[in-house]
Amino acid sequence: MTREPPTILLAAGGTGGHLFPAYALAEELGRRGFAVDLVTDMRGDRYGTGFPARSVYQLPAATPGSKRNPIALARASFTLARGILKAHKLLRSVKPAAVVGFGGYPTIPPLVAARMLGVPSIIHEQNAVLGRANRVLAKHAAAVATSFRKTKFLEGALAEKARFTGNPVRGVVIEAAKTPYPPLNQNGPIHLLVFGGSQGARFFSEAVPPALATLPLSVRQRLKLVQQAREEDVAAVKAETAAAGIDAEIATFFKNLPQIMADSHVVIARAGASSVAELAVIGRPSILVPLPHSLDSDQLANATNLAESGGSWCIEQRDLTPLRLATELGRLFDSPDTLSRAAASAKAQGQASSVGLLADLVGDVIGRRRGADGGTS
């Protein structure tokens, strides 16, 4: 009689920072013969990735608001409670060998249900700061996988559960990383990529075009710009870059973003965990502008880590005027050697093996559980 492969249930919210490492792990677990299911919130997959799971389930979830708004807090609590009940029913049906959560409040219902049913859980933290939902869930997790060797708020008994795996990246990123850094020829085209992650980065739409417009004409004529913009900003960004004589491709989303990144000389981006991980694995110099007012300044911590390695330059949004950006870009475009060194430094921080390490951890947790059960699944 053929034995069914163990099922691993992945829990991730609908943002790229949560979905992309979950996607990478799903790919690797599939290669290792596991069945993989995904549970997410009602946003679903907004990235057109075709998540590599046997089944995708959606559960209601909510982010608790401020305690100063008791009505909103009560609504969020009710939604989470409803999600836990539905997750309990789902886990009884799916019977996963383990549940792996990738942070965010949408992971609370399935991981709480896992604890209620005695199913081992693993948490993966993408940022250099342990997220608030993960702080709640880590106490009862079998293991906490980290993307950075030092993770803020991971201390005491929680630190004993930690295993450094790095932040997994998808197969398309590993493939793009095979492209060598294209040295900047002082008379050749300059490939510049600007993207803001799932937040859309209206700031970049407002700051980048006027910054580029102040560059010398000889530089603008060499620019090949690819920039992400919100739908309502696309027309304005196209008009401004065209008026400046810049060859630009402006869109709301680029499905082949990893390869575009690999073809770039410089990248301007937010400092979300997945963006930083992909920049490092591919090895591209970047100007990172952390999202201001993010909880616990997690993006600032992510950007600082890469900047300290010499692979990027971290500039906080409050300090990045169009004039400052134009000055920084002009300096980098005039120094191809600086860009090449930064590309090499970024790549030295890349962890292409992260997905294998995380899959190993899943196997270890399942193995410990089977051992505790006397070899049963």
Rank of each mutant, 00 (worst) to 15 (best):
N256P: 06
A213P: 08
F164G: 07
V169L: 02
M261N: 04
Q186G: 07
P189A: 15
A242E: 15
I287P: 11
F195A: 11
L217S: 13
R220C: 06
Q228D: 04
E232S: 14
A236H: 09
A177Y: 04
P180F: 06
P189G: 11
A242D: 13
F204D: 01
Q199E: 13
G245F: 08
V226I: 14
K224G: 03
Q221E: 15
S198Q: 05
L279F: 04
V169Y: 00
A176P: 11
D247W: 07
L225D: 06
E278T: 13
S274A: 15
V234S: 04
P292D: 12
H293R: 14
F254P: 10
A229W: 07
F253N: 05
V266P: 10
A236M: 12
L279E: 05
S218Y: 02
A235I: 02
R170W: 00
S274R: 06
V172A: 15
V208A: 01
E240I: 05
D233E: 11
P216T: 03
A211C: 03
F204N: 07
A248P: 03
Q221I: 01
F253V: 03
L158T: 13
V172R: 13
A229I: 00
L193F: 06
A243T: 04
R270N: 13
R170Q: 04
A213L: 05
V169I: 14
V267N: 00
A244G: 00
E206F: 01
S218H: 12
E175N: 14
I260N: 01
F195N: 04
G272K: 09
Q227V: 05
F253T: 03
T165H: 03
L288E: 03
R284N: 02
N256W: 08
A207G: 09
L279A: 07
A239T: 07
P189H: 01
